[in-house]
Design a protein around this nucleic acid. Structure first.
Lengths: 205, 205
DNA sequence: GTCTATATAACGATAGAC
DNA sequence: GTCTATCGTTATATAGAC
C-alpha cells in the first residue's frame, strides 16, 4: 500500500525539478536519476511519450489535489469573531498557495503549448481564494457592497500571493514570521470589512 | 543621437526574451534575430563573451535604471491628506515594479550562477519600497510603533507585488483597473495607519 | 520495465573571409 | 562588425537486449 509506482515517482520528482530549475533547464536524464532510474536511459519514455506529456501529467495531478482541498474553508465559519475567522482563513489560504507552489514555479518558465493550461489553473486559483474572502466579508457585514467586498478580497489575496511568490523568486525566506504577517493582514482586512459601504471612494481623484 | 548601438539592442531584446520564455529556453540565435542580426551567426559574441555575460549586462543595466528612479518618492510628501499621499505612493510603486518587471520575470528561471545577483537585487527592491511606506506611515502617525509600521508596509508591498507578478505568471490582465485596486489598497493602509499603536495584536491566539 | 547503445537535432561558442 | 561555416557538447527520443 505504501508502494509508490515508478510513474508517480517520475511525476513528483519532475515537478520538483521543474519548479527549482525551470522546465527547459531540467533534462530527462536528471529526472530519471531523481526517480532512482539510470540517468540517460530512456526508461522515462516507457511511462510518458515525451517530456512535455510528463509536465501535462504533473499539471493534472496538481489540479486533482486542488479539488481535494476545496470547500474546506466553510469549516472556519462561525468559530468566533471576525478577526479569528479571518486569521484562520488567511492561514488556510497560505497553505493552499503552498500546495500550489510548484505549479506557480513551473508556470514561470513553460513552453507555450502548456501555457494556456497553466494560466487557466492560475486564474481558477485566484478566483477561488478571492471568493472565500468575499463570502466571509459579506457574512460579517451584510451592508458591504459586492464591489467593495471584491476589492477587499482582491487586495487580500494578492498580499498572500505576493508574500509566497516573493520567496519563490528570491529563494530567501522573510524575516517576518507568517503569524506576524497574518496578524497585520487580518487587522487590515477587518478594518475595511467593518467600515460602512462606499468607504473605498474616500481616496484622491 | 537616436542611434542605438547593436550592443544595447542585444541587451534589450535578450532581457525581453528571457522574461517571456526563460533564460534557458531563449537561444543565442533567437536573440541575434531579434536584434536585427543574422540568426545563428556568432555576431553576438563580438559584444559579449558568452550568453551568461549578456544576462549579467542586462542585470547591471536594470540596476542602473533603478538607481535613476530612487528618491523620487519624497516628491509626494506634503501634497495633501494621508489618503492622497498613499495613492500617489502606491501608483509610483506600481510604476517602479513595472520597471523591474523584466528582472522579476528573468529571476523565475535562471541558472544558479546568476541567482545570487538576482536575489540580492530583488531583496533591495522590496526593502526600498517597504521603507518608503514606513516613512509615510510614521510621518502621518508618529505614535505608530516601528514594528507596526513595518508590518503594514510589508503587507502593502506584497499586495502590489502580488498584483503585478500575477499577470506576469498568468499573462492575463486583471478585470479590475489599477485605480480601483489602488483605491482599496489606500483605504486599507490608511485604516491601519490611523489606528492607535498595538492594534495589530487584536487577532486570534 | 529497465538497461546499453545510438540516432537525430539543437545549442553555445569559435575560426576565418569580407 | 557582420557574415558563412563548423566544431564540440548536450539534449530528446528510439531500438533492441535482458
Amino acid at each position: 500500500m505504501a508502494e509508490v509506482s515508478t510513474r508517480d515517482r517520475l511525476i513528483v520528482e519532475a515537478m520538483r525539478l521543474f519548479c527549482e530549475q525551470g522546465y527547459r533547464a531540467t533534462s530527462v536524464a536528471q529526472i530519471e536519476a531523481a526517480a532512482g532510474l539510470a540517468a540517460g536511459s530512456g526508461a522515462l519514455y516507457h511511462h510518458f511519450k515525451s517530456k512535455e506529456s510528463l509536465l501535462e501529467a504533473g499539471i493534472d495531478r496538481q489540479l486533482d489535489r486542488r479539488q481535494a482541498m476545496r470547500d474546506i474553508s466553510v469549516l472556519f465559519r462561525g468559530v468566533g469573531d471576525l478577526r479569528t475567522e479571518l486569521t484562520l482563513l488567511g492561514r488556510y489560504q497560505l497553505a493552499v498557495i503552498d500546495e500550489e507552489r510548484q505549479l506557480l514555479g513551473v508556470a514561470a518558465s513553460t513552453p507555450a503549448a502548456q501555457a494556456s493550461r497553466l494560466n487557466a489553473a492560475y486564474g481558477a486559483l485566484i478566483h477561488g481564494l478571492s471568493g472565500d474572502i468575499v463570502d466571509l466579508a459579506k457574512n460579517w457585514n451584510p451592508d458591504l457592497a459586492e464591489a467593495d467586498a471584491a476589492s477587499i478580497a482582491l487586495v487580500g489575496v494578492n498580499a498572500l500571493l505576493g508574500r509566497r511568490i516573493s520567496v519563490l523568486l528570491s529563494g530567501v525566506e522573510s524575516t517576518v514570521s507568517d503569524d506576524s504577517f497574518l496578524a497585520e493582514w487580518t487587522a487590515m482586512l477587518a478594518c475595511r470589512i467593518e467600515a460602512e459601504s462606499g468607504a473605498a471612494d474616500r481616496t484622491a481623484s
